[in-house]
């Protein structure tokens, strides 16, 4: 089935909605990969719950993006018929799950940003985004609590759990800078009161991460670490294409399949 192009040359509000939707879907799909493989039943359910929250957020946002685009497409078209370079998610969302330590640290780093982001977005001049944000804010508050509690226990745990958490930190930290980036499209929305300025949320993110890391006895990496960038422009690492191949296989092989 032919791939579709939506993000390229998209007006600011559509691009912004797609970026939020893509990050939510990609991270949600990553978490769903734990289903059947989590280290314990309780965490299997916990990760699946978080995945379902994120996929629910993505659905609302894709439905709105399809409406904004105005070409009669559906949320499923946007999720299943776009190739990796069309995806505009943050790179941290597409990073492989690795072990449980890396998965919960990734969730902490993203949730610590998304909580103040959704909170600020509830004041958006766009009523639909504000409504999605109000629902998502409550969900992400729990994601942050759950991930934070695990990072604390694994960081300040056994030699094995701490070493895994340190490896996860080395792996994921370079992907945190992208959350605070803005481009011309973002700045138009920020100036118009449609979206918050992510740079203004940095102190809250820093404080959350510092609080959790202090309890976890993990060092906060020094400022000035070289940061990865590109996901928000459609420039992805090698992993996203593989993930989408799995995620999109069924609707592409059997267009319009329903059950």
């Amino acid at each position: 089935m032919t791939s579709i192009l939506v993000a390229r040359d998209a007006p600011p509000l559509l691009l912004h909605t797609l970026r939020l939707a893509d990050t939510a879907l990609v991270l949600g799909h990553r978490l769903s990969e734990w289903t059947g493989q989590a280290p314990m039943l309780e965490e299997e359910l916990a990760l699946a719950n978080v995945a379902l929250d994120l996929i629910g957020q993505a659905r609302s946002l894709y439905a709105y993006a399809a409406e904004l685009e105005g070409k009669g497409r559906t949320e499923d078209d946007l999720a299943y018929l776009r190739d990796a370079p069309e995806y505009r998610n943050l790179l941290i969302a597409e990073q492989p799950n690795g072990d449980f330590a890396r998965t919960v640290l990734r969730q902490l780093l993203v949730s610590a940003f998304m909580l103040p982001y959704w909170h600020a977005l509830t004041a958006s001049r766009d009523e639909t985004l504000a409504a999605v944000a109000a629902k998502a804010e409550k969900e992400v508050a729990y994601h942050l609590r759950h991930a934070g509690e695990w990072v604390i226990r694994l960081g300040d745990g056994t030699d094995e759990s701490r070493s895994r958490m340190e490896d996860a930190l080395d792996e994921l930290w370079p992907f945190t800078g992208e959350m605070f980036e803005t481009d011309e499209s973002d700045r138009a929305l920020i100036a118009g009161g449609f979206a918050p300025d992510p740079a203004a949320l940095r102190p809250e993110w820093d404080a959350t991460v510092a609080r959790v890391f202090a309890e976890a006895t993990l060092p906060v990496p020094q400022a000035g670490t070289w940061m990865q960038s590109g996901g928000r422009r459609g420039v992805h690492g090698e992993h996203l294409g593989h993930m989408l191949a799995t995620m999109q296989h069924l609707p592409r092989a059997y267009p319009g399949a329903a059950w």
Partner: peptide
Amino acid sequence: SVHAPDAAMALLAARDTYTR
């Protein structure tokens, strides 16, 4: 019942397991 390392985590596990 749930398995959890301590009371705080047991509350989260209980929420995720029994209040879906």
